[in-house]
Design a protein around this nucleic acid. Structure first.
Lengths: 238, 238
DNA sequence: CAAATAGTGTCTTTTAGACAATATCCC
DNA sequence: GGGATATTGTCTAAAAGACACTATTTG
């Protein structure tokens, strides 16, 4: 590379001195996909949409769409969240960007994947009127998925498990008030293994991020459970 | 959303029934930037290139370039690594994708950022013949940077510190044989704090991922240090 | 009082962290 | 022997993990 006319990062040599073999290529499409997760029936479930045309017609896919011209990646993801799950103000985090040249047989598509955690109380019936088109699936019993979406789900679960240990991300799946059993269910669903009740409660309470409310919750013929609130004071975030 | 003609993830409504306000937008440019890191003079340093034109002329930038049409994101990053630092087979990991619509004043540029760790022994003099154009800077004494590259460097260091704790990523900055003091220097440079020598050695050796070689390294008027090798047997990777 | 979930404590093992003296080499 | 870095162990505190019984409510 000569110093005098070195291509700089955003002006590749092909723009300056195009060769026959270096024809101007069209830019790739850029999409965001959003893995939308929530707790349903004590399990972690993901919202998927059914594809209605080629490619992968009839298979299920992670909701996604093209990033608009003047929209940030996160804004695009939030727009999708509103469209697909009618939720706002939920936990949203960028996961990874998948860009294999042939991941979509139609054209080059680079997708920036986010994942969102929907609190139990945020979950409206929004998906209901569209039942044939989108549905919730337990993450450990997924249907056949389109594109590279199975790897995306796998990677999401890895990230989630990792973050569970050193962040307060788990609370993002619960209503503002919850029992310690609720919280334990979230951890068990994500980690996919049972936890000891005593050790779990000891550990969670020792962190000081839980606040005991005066409320309890009765359900069935047994002792009511105390409700706690997440207290984000000393929280180092998710 | 009606079931009959719902837009699917890669065929947005704008393609099917364009409205006046939804003119066909050109796709954004997609680049990869690669934060190239190595240990030099007992410090962690990053390779930066000097910009020669607007915008941010004269400021330093993370090496990067447009992703080619039939090239994966990681391939693009490796190509950049070869171009800028003349290295191959180094540790490379995707960091994050930055896509603010106005992060580049010229046009919409979405950049997928990778970071690479160059082992001390891989570091050739490749940068030398191009001294005015690119240079190594200690990560804690960076020059003014172009675009959003300062946040990118900050985020890189966060990721690196996080991964240091639960992976073997630190070894990627060392030659195949190294002393325990070499390794401790890497940890101290990334964590930016001194570590207790006895506790550090105890902990590292207890993991069983180090193999004592028969070699030693003499340097100066003191006792030679034993050389170790990274033994990737029970390694859960970086 | 039977059924069902809520709630609680101890002991052991492992890990983290503070802390200082001796060993070996070169000059 | 002086200078310089290599190498080693103990003690304490904190955290993790195994493990079982009592409490409270409803039907």
């Amino acid at each position: 590379m000569r110093a005098s006319d070195a291509p700089t990062r955003d002006q590749p040599a092909t723009r300056q001195a195009p060769l026959a073999s270096e024809v101007r290529q069209e830019n790739p499409s850029v999409t965001v996909d959003v893995v939308i997760l929530t707790m349903r029936k004590r399990r972690l479930e993901a919202l998927l949409v059914k594809r209605k045309r080629w490619p992968y017609e009839g298979l299920w896919a992670i909701p996604g769409g093209v990033v608009a011209a003047d929209e940030s990646l996160e804004d695009a993801a939030r727009r999708k969240l509103e469209q697909e799950a009618s939720v706002r103000d939920v936990y949203l985090e960028q996961l990874y960007t998948f860009g294999d040249p042939h991941r979509d047989p139609r054209r080059r598509v680079i997708t920036v994947v986010y994942y969102a955690l929907i609190r139990a109380d945020e979950l409206r019936l929004a998906v209901a009127d569209d039942a044939a088109e989108s549905a919730w699936f337990p993450v450990d019993a997924l249907p056949p998925l389109a594109f590279d979406h199975e790897s995306i789900l796998t990677y999401t679960m890895q990230r989630l498990r990792g973050k569970l240990e050193y962040t307060t991300i788990g609370f993002q799946l619960l209503a503002p008030e919850f029992t310690l059993s609720d919280l334990q269910e979230v951890y068990e669903a994500i980690l996919n293994r049972p936890l000891d009740k005593r050790n779990f409660r000891k550990k969670v309470l020792s962190t000081g991020i839980l606040e005991l409310t005066t409320h309890t919750r009765k359900s069935g013929q047994h002792r009511p459970a105390a409700l706690y609130r997440f207290s984000p004071r000393a929280d180092r975030g998710a």
